[in-house]
């Protein structure tokens, strides 16, 4: 789980924010696996990069993703 859910000072996440983080963290989980064929691996990398601005813009996560190759 991303460690930064309350940077804006919010005590709770909205339902939308919670869903976004769930998907975002799910993509990171997939990238930790070693059984992804290239079509999955690079699509998920691209998806994680694409989703990052949404969680960053909402103040849910601000982090580097080089460990995920992203």
């Amino acid at each position: 789980m991303s460690d930064s859910a309350t940077f804006f000072g919010d005590s709770t996440l909205t339902e939308l924010e919670g869903r976004l983080l769930e998907i975002y963290d799910g993509l990171k989980e997939i990238l930790k696996r070693d059984d992804c064929p290239p079509c999955v691996l690079f699509s998920v990398k691209q998806s994680l990069a694409a989703l990052y601005p949404a969680v960053n813009d909402l103040g849910l996560a601000y982090e580097y993703l080089f460990d995920y190759g992203v």
Binding site: K45, Q46, L48, A49, A50, Y52, P53, N56, D57, Y64, L65, F66, G69, V70
Partner: peptide, 15 residues
């Protein structure tokens, strides 16, 4: 730029 950085730049321009 890597994927995350490029995606950030594009989003900032889109804003």
């Amino acid at each position: 730029d890597g994927r995350r950085d490029w995606s950030w730049m594009v989003d900032a321009w889109a804003e």
